[in-house]
């Protein structure tokens, strides 16, 4: 994957300076790169190897014991691990596509607006900027059965609403709703792509008598599809680490149960918001089964790496020549 093309203009002052200059240049590169080289080694390379090592141990930060494959064996048959994987899978397969589609729809709409386009754009984008913790707290309240304003409004209108974050069947849809509300990042990337479609293409199509749907289908979609794919893949990678919203929603909805003296199983209600990273956190930093947490981390690494490679490939097909 690292085939250097080096196609463009070579450094202009190559030969004359000789070996010393080359060494000087090499040192210069090293000097500029040094923060990252150190950082990569210390904060990525080393811990990754250490994760492999610790996965064969039982370690609670006090006592370290080599236990061979015990942690790996535990993984098979660990219902909580399975449940958390399914929850994360749910989010990946439903929330990600929904966000991309909704983002595309919003972008398409914005592209069509003449009057007030700027204002609408800002409004659509704004929720994305709300800190995730705050957004989640607000959502749990707004949708809170019995007391939340939305629940109240729906009641007045006679529309029955689910219990959202208090119902195991509806908590993940609630999170997806939150994800749709904060669709700004996806939307902006797609808006850029939609606006980048050459106008002549539309005009030509219109002259040929193509309706709005046909224009969208045959002109917009093909042009923006690489960006769509990009948004989808990065969305998957982001969702694999989905933690904050799920954890906060569970905590806030459980409310008073999360007090000193009570021990709450994570993923309220009924483990339905227990995402995989949250389970990893729970095993590592609540149960202090550090070794087992490392097994979970390696699993996450494998899956995330798969999608990262996909992304890098996509990069590649986009990128040739210069730089990347």
């Amino acid at each position: 994957m690292a085939a250097v093309t080096g196609a463009s203009a070579a450094a202009p002052r190559g030969r004359t300076a000789g070996a010393r200059a080359r060494r000087h240049r090499r040192l210069r590169v090293l000097a500029f790169l040094s923060p990252w080289l150190i950082g990569f080694t210390l904060f990525f390379g080393y811990p990754l190897l250490a994760t492999v090592y610790f996965s064969f141990t039982r370690y609670d930060l006090f006592n370290l014991e080599y236990v061979g494959l015990t942690n790996y064996r535990y993984l098979f048959g660990d219902q909580d691990a399975r449940r958390s994987m399914l929850n994360t899978l749910w989010l990946v397969t439903l929330m990600v596509p929904l966000r991309v589609l909704f983002g595309l729809g919003a972008a398409q709409l914005l592209a069509h607006l003449k009057r007030g386009g700027g204002l609408f754009r800002s409004i659509f984008y704004l929720p994305y900027l709300v800190p995730p913790v705050s957004a989640t707290v607000a959502f749990v309240f707004v949708l809170n059965p019995g007391t939340g304003p939305v629940d109240h409004l729906a009641d007045l209108a006679g529309i029955p609403l689910p219990d959202w974050f208090n119902d195991p069947d509806w908590s993940k849809p609630g999170l997806a709703l939150l994800g749709l509300w904060a669709v700004g990042d996806v939307m902006i990337i797609l808006l850029a792509a939609v606006l980048d479609v050459p106008r002549q293409l539309y005009e030509a199509a219109e002259i040929d008598g193509a309706g709005p749907w046909q224009r969208f289908r045959h002109i917009t979609l093909p042009t923006v599809s690489p960006v769509l794919a990009f948004a989808a893949v990065t969305g998957v990678i982001q969702t694999l680490q989905y933690f904050t919203q799920a954890m906060v929603a569970g905590k806030v909805a459980a409310g008073q149960s999360d007090q000193p003296g009570t021990q709450l199983a994570p993923g309220y209600p009924g483990g339905s918001t227990l995402t995989f990273p949250q389970y990893l956190y729970d095993e590592g930093f609540r149960q202090f089964n550090m070794g087992y947490a490392c097994v979970l981390a390696l699993l996450l690494f494998a899956v995330a790496m798969l999608f990262t490679l996909l992304l890098l490939r996509q990069f590649h097909s986009f990128a040739d020549g210069e730089a990347s």
């Binding site: 990569f40 904060f43 990525f44 080393y46 811990p47 990754l48 250490a50 994760t51 610790f54 370690y59 930060l61 990065t234 990678i237 694999l240 680490q241 933690f243 990273p277 990893l280 956190y281 590592g284 930093f285 550090m290 947490a293 490392c294 981390a297 390696l298 996450l300 690494f301 995330a304 790496m305 999608f307 990262t308 992304l311 890098l312 990069f315």
Partner: peptide, 17 residues
């Protein structure tokens, strides 16, 4: 790019230690 993409949870245990 790879480090940018990979979840921080992967390396958190050894780093914490």
């Amino acid at each position: 790019i790879t480090t940018m993409m990979l979840p921080p949870q992967i390396t958190v245990v050894p780093l914490y230690i």
